[in-house]
């Protein structure tokens, strides 16, 4: 859908609403005051569904923190070790899935050794499997399991896991996710602890996740470099760690879309696979829904102040 069309529709809807509001003030006030919340649910559904069906997208302009994440990965040399801490689940896949895909794609293009693990949820291994199946096996079939990437799977214990692997990974990770001894995995042979990693990339949806990686890995071991992608709910609380404890941060789907653009601009083909554009795709409904929220707050305040005036009168 054309951007100009989207704005025209928006302006018409807002304009029509204002006309109704001005000409039928009393009726509008009463209707809005007792508005059934199911109408709001319906509006939200339409605000997200229509842009998805219309495949509405907008241009992206990467900001500093996304560039910082991109640059940290760019600095690495082929063969460098990257810990891919995939701490999310299906409940946050809408926001974090595109980041995880873009991180994997970027690391594959750079020829980095990827060590996947998860401490957030027992469902984490499925998220790792998604990255391996949809990116590595689909588009980088020459990469070999155990040589170029490994799936260490899930361990219970939250920050207790980080506490152990910063000094000794072998005692806890005796096998990979598939039950193979780490001693038989070539890329694990010389890894004693995660201090040997050249970068930690964390995709985090909550506890245990980015905060724990900051507090128990990046803070006590300042040589460890950490970048992350997090959910919108978490993002604002991570800013105090930047840049000393956390070098770069992707916040919510916008962060994903920005990073996707940076990666595709440098490494993408002429016509990139649509799975690498998920962030950009979801920014369409995002814009319309944000507008809806703003309109809802403004309308609610109109009702509130109109009510106040009536009380005084």
């Amino acid at each position: 859908m054309n951007v100009a069309w989207a704005w025209t529709i928006l302006v018409v809807v807002v304009g029509a609403s204002l006309v109704v509001l001005v000409t039928r003030r009393e009726q509008t006030y009463r209707a809005l005051k007792d508005l059934d919340r199911r109408w709001i649910f319906l509006l939200m559904l339409l605000a997200v569904a229509i842009p998805i069906l219309g495949e509405l997208t907008f241009p992206e302009k990467p900001t500093g923190l996304a560039k910082a994440v991109f640059d940290e990965i760019e600095k690495l040399e082929p063969g460098d070790k990257v810990l891919m801490a995939w701490d999310y689940d299906p409940a946050s896949e809408g926001e974090l899935g595109p980041m995880a895909t873009a991180f994997t794609y970027h690391c594959c293009k750079k020829g980095l050794k990827m060590y996947y693990m998860t401490i957030f949820s027992p469902v984490g291994p499925q998220m790792i499997e998604d990255a391996i199946e949809h990116v590595i096996k689909a588009d980088f079939p020459h990469l070999e399991y155990g040589v170029d990437y490994v799936n260490l799977g899930y361990k219970s214990g939250y920050e207790g896991v980080i506490k152990v692997i910063v000094s000794n990974i072998r005692e806890l990770y005796t096998t990979d996710h598939y039950g193979k001894s780490v001693q038989d995995i070539p890329m694990m042979r010389d890894v004693r602890n995660i201090q040997q990693m050249d970068l930690i990339i964390n995709v985090s949806a909550g506890y245990a996740g980015l905060k724990e990686w900051v507090l128990f890995a990046a803070t006590p071991y300042p040589d460890l470099t950490l970048v992350a992608g997090v959910t919108g709910v978490m993002a604002p609380q991570q800013y105090p760690y930047i840049p000393e404890q956390l070098r770069g941060l992707l916040g919510a789907i916008k962060g994903a879309a920005e990073y996707e653009k940076l990666v595709l601009d440098k490494y993408g083909d002429e016509d990139p696979d649509p799975k690498y554009l998920k962030g950009k795709q979801r920014m369409g409904p995002q814009l319309i829904a944000h507008m809806l929220i703003i309109v809802l707050i403004i309308v609610a305040n109109f009702v509130y102040f109109a009510g106040k005036r009536r009380e005084r009168a």
Partner: peptide, 23 residues
């Protein structure tokens, strides 16, 4: 306020992925 703005962002993306599945 910033936290609220970011929370809205997150929630919408979660709805988007479910609607993408349905459609």
């Amino acid at each position: 306020g910033a936290g609220f703005g970011y929370t809205v962002m997150g929630r919408i993306a979660l709805l988007a992925i479910r609607l993408e599945f349905l459609f």
